[in-house]
């Protein structure tokens, strides 16, 4: 139903005058609400199956992330295993079977999402590279789908291969099986960010990397995020990673996931390796660890 409405609105927008009126009205609305909301969950519940076998992945999730102009916000999502962190990301991405939500509304830029799209890029933990494509063709994939001609997309892809710390000369023509896990994640990040999505969704992208590679990747991500000014949702198991990367940390309760705590955390001013040893930084980590542990124990008590 909502889809039909937005389709009906489009032709109006195309006609000059009507469009101007519509935008003005829209501006007033957003001013009335403060900043416009880039992602908003209203009472979102996702249930799989029916009857006694039904499984509720997330329940009554409410949050709103504002579109910070010229900056974008970095939201880290933490929580115990199986609490529905990935479900939240996949609902924003519009990926089945998590999309659509069973009840409630998932709004991106104030509109319900019809399905997956390049405005919401996603980086996964595994199976990330298209094995049959060279690094260059992996990075250029999204541009190729958009119909950008070969010369232009390769030029931009080479720039991004450099930006994520790979060698344009040595690595561009390699196939994924010739790369290490960290290098493959660099390719995946370049392939997503080259499209300059306004929302970047990352589902434990560094979860399979060794600790030192992981720290380097965190610094790379911060650097690229500052350049892109996009809103990032970053799911992770690692509290240090969440506190270091995030402007805000959402903590989800155990299954079915509901957002229980929302914390502002310090801005990453130093490289990951230094900052994650800082006592002030560690205070935040311990505080969050205590919160999660108390959530888990109260959950267990509830089961007994």
């Amino acid at each position: 139903m909502t889809d039909d409405k937005s389709v009906d609105n489009n032709p109006q927008v195309a006609e000059g005058k009507v469009a101007a009126v519509a935008t003005e009205a829209g501006d007033k609305n957003s001013r009335a609400e403060g900043l416009s909301r880039i992602v908003e969950f209203k009472n979102v519940t996702k249930r799989f199956g029916d009857g006694p076998d039904a499984f509720t992945a997330v329940k009554d999730i409410n949050f709103a992330v504002e579109d910070l102009p010229g900056r974008g916000e970095f939201v880290a999502v933490l929580g115990p295993s199986g609490c529905g962190k990935s479900t939240v990301l996949r609902l924003i991405a519009g990926l089945a079977p998590h999309h659509p939500a069973t009840s409630g509304e998932v709004l991106v830029g104030g509109k319900p999402i019809p399905g997956p799209g390049a405005d919401r890029g996603m980086v996964f933990q595994d199976y990330t590279s298209f094995d049959h494509r060279s690094v260059l063709d992996n990075v250029a994939f999204g541009l190729e789908c958009r119909g950008v001609d070969k010369a232009a997309r390769y030029e931009l892809a080479r720039q991004w291969i450099g930006k994520v710390g790979l060698s344009v000369d040595k690595d561009a023509d390699k196939y994924p099986h010739q790369l290490s896990g960290g290098m493959r994640q660099r390719v995946a990040i370049a392939r997503t960010l080259i499209l300059r999505p306004r929302i970047i969704l990352m589902d434990e992208p560094f979860g399979a990397l060794d600790p030192s590679t992981r720290l380097r990747m965190q610094d790379l991500l911060i650097e690229l995020w500052r350049e892109l000014e996009a809103t990032v949702f970053f799911v992770t198991h690692s509290i240090e990673e969440a506190v270091y990367l995030g402007d805000r940390v959402y903590i989800l309760s155990a299954s079915p996931g509901t957002i229980l705590e929302e914390l502002g955390v310090p801005y990453p001013d130093f490289p990951a390796k230094e900052m994650q040893r800082d006592p002030h930084f560690l205070d935040y980590v311990f505080k969050i660890r205590d919160t999660i542990e108390s959530l888990e124990s109260s959950d267990r008590a509830g089961d007994d």
């Binding site: 799209g117 996964f124 595994d126 499209l195």
Partner: peptide
């Protein structure tokens, strides 16, 4: 693996492009 399809979808590939390019 579904992940390849999902990755392509979030990179803006149409279902036709997913069939032929992925």
């Amino acid at each position: 693996h579904d992940r390849y399809v999902e990755t392509a979808q979030t990179l803006g590939a149409s279902s036709r492009q997913i069939a032929f390019k992925v």
